[in-house]
Write a protein that binds this DNA or RNA. Structure first.
Lengths: 260, 260
DNA sequence: CTTGACCTTGACGCAGCGTCAGGGTTGCAA
DNA sequence: TTGCAACCCTGACGCTGCGTCAAGGTCAAG
């Protein structure tokens, strides 16, 4: 008669594994000797080896019991099933490898390449890092909701950077970002901003349809909140803009003169 | 401000996952509103999306935090490490697929092909199933301890089956397996057995060295116990054999005449 | 006021054991 | 005889990444 460690040694497994198989009902609990020790016979060794053979082949323990009692057809079906599962897991990991390979530190994490290129171009304009980060975060939000439209969106934004007026607008915005809410320069800034907006939008037949990227209202609110939360003067600026006939921010719209 | 489910929706994850990331310290706990609800800003959405991007690429959560703060070099090193892990897991599963493919119901589970062939040949001798099973179990035990020697061992056993005397011995043994311990035919059986043993061993210059397969003592004991436990008359038979000058079973040896 | 959709914390479950913790048993050597 | 190492026992937590109740508070609409 064998002790549990002898049994385990014969089958090449750990004592803990043997007890685990007992707990799972794969291996029947043997008789105990006078001091409560488990005592095994050779049949237990054979069964344990058969269990390990399956487990070593990647068969989940929950299926081992059925497999040991299966006839040839059931066995073949189960083997097929297990092979499919293994294949699926392999495919998943292969997919993960591709994803991981495309990961790179910084912007490209959670952004498509067009957006990374756009941000890189912005960076060359010598704007402060924080401004770029805000821009990046905004595009991360957009990319998460509308991944398919990112190439089109980035193409539009990239084209806008060719306009000197837009560039000037960007530079002004960046300056303003650090002002306190009650900065005295804000009204004059709002005037200049409206002028620039109307200037840049003059080139487009219909500002709104050109500037409407299909962002839904919730996303627009979210993007607005990025601006509102990170720029102290933002709330007051939006109020000043409204006084000057423009409402919103992410999706800037002229206030309907009829309604006002 | 966003509720937890809105946050989760924006990032395409479950509410439970968000709370899990809080618990793991990946996502900082946000402010609570007057009724204790978590309230998130857009920054949380961005962070959550970045976390998911990594997690979706198979990065373990325990490494996500460090990765989000890593510089390019650290990031590249971590990505390398993760890729190695994924590759190792893929290899493991590919190995499992091969193992699974070689699994077949019945004997071949835990036995090499030579042994399966040997058992198949035994089966054609029209012996009862239980006898074959005992033989199979014994070889499973041997194969587990001495996998490398199985081809050689099975070649010897296979050759033995060519001898009519050995065949007769097998048939007699199978008969005896069902006898009770006190069966009156047992002494005569022992006589015949000894005759057959000496007959079959006559052809070999040195029985013992030919019959010694390098099994160590423990394995011999284990194999003996298979016989002793499954054949009622086995203990008495071994005694009768000892009286006739042979001791052991798996490794049958002539008792030294000098010592007796 | 009710109903349904949310929100909260807490806890178990899954796979396959590894690894203490805390305590008895056995067998051999001094 | 005593001591010590090497076993044995049960019970329980840990790891991974959440899913899934449970039991109860909150909120907005009808």
């Amino acid at each position: 008669m064998l002790t549990i460690s002898q049994l385990a040694d014969y089958a090449g497994v750990t004592v803990r594994a043997v007890r685990h198989y007992h707990a799972k009902g794969l291996l029947p609990e043997p008789e105990r000797d006078h001091s409560g020790y488990r005592r095994y016979d050779a049949a237990a060794v054979v069964l344990l080896i058969r269990i390990r053979t399956l487990a070593d082949a990647g068969v989940p323990l929950s299926r081992v019991h059925a497999l040991l009692a299966a006839d040839n057809d059931e066995f073949a079906a189960a083997v097929d099933d297990i092979d499919r599962r293994l294949l699926a897991e392999i495919r998943e990991r292969q997919h993960h490898r591709k994803q991981v390979a495309q990961l790179a530190a910084g912007d490209s994490l959670a952004l498509p390449p067009e957006a990374v290129a756009y941000l890189d171009r912005l960076r060359q304009l010598d704007l402060p890092d924080r401004a770029i980060e805000l821009e990046r975060d905004a595009w991360i939000l957009v990319a998460a909701q509308l991944p398919d439209q990112m190439p089109a969106l980035m193409a539009v934004k990239d084209a806008q950077l060719d306009s000197p007026a837009v560039l000037a607008l960007y530079r002004d915005l960046v300056q303003m970002a650090d002002w306190p809410a009650d900065d005295p320069r804000l009204p004059a800034f709002a005037d200049r901003l409206v002028f620039l907006i109307e200037e840049t939008s003059k080139g487009w037949a219909d500002y709104e349809s050109t500037n409407d990227f299909g962002l839904d209202e919730e996303l627009v609110d979210l993007l607005d909140s990025v601006f509102l939360n990170s720029v102290p003067a933002a709330p007051r600026l939006l109020r000043l803009l409204r006084e000057r006939g423009w409402t919103g921010w992410t999706k800037l719209e002229r206030i309907n003169p009829v309604a006002s």
